[in-house]
Amino acid sequence: MSEEMTTELSEGTTQRDRYMTFKSGNEYFAIGIEYINEIIPFQRITVIPETENYIKGLINLRGKIIPVVDVALRFNQPPLEYNDRTCIIVIDVKSTVVGLIVERIAEVVTIEEEDILPPPSIGRSNKVQNKYVYGIGKTGDSVKLLLDLDKFLHDEETGITEQADSFAELEE
């Protein structure tokens, strides 16, 4: 019993600060590694008619049927050309299993808690909420936008591009 607990704990610590990063548009985004089930190569997607444009359809993951979301479309970025190197990140957020199609998977990084800054409020208007990004992680010279997956999956409106743009401005 106690042994189990310690292993769980240590797993927790090893996973806590680890993030998977991927590129979408000009930005690098990061997802907490504990949400990631696996990464699978691109496969045939069955189109679901009449849904939001970023929901590309369904895939068959070893008998489980899961929806896939195109991250670029979700962020209102120009659509991607899918090719052999396109990957699907399978995430599990509160038992909702979804595949994310991303332009390019980058790397797994460690971001310490003290290196995570709250997203700066955006000067132009206070009304712009920080929708999908709950923090900005610094790794070395670069900055990753930490994705709030719950909002990413379930919030209706978008507005991330605007946000990403202003982050880009900030960076410069």
């Binding site: 679901i48 009449e50 049927i65 929806p67 909702t96």
Partner: peptide, 27 residues
């Protein structure tokens, strides 16, 4: 019969999905 994943809102005219013999999905 398998349910359409809950993440996808109810689609008019569809009640579920299934897997065909070749592994592809049918609605």
């Amino acid at each position: 019969v398998k349910p359409i994943p809950k993440y996808i809102k109810k689609v008019k005219g569809l009640s579920g999905c299934t897997q065909l013999g070749d592994g592809s999905i049918a609605l």
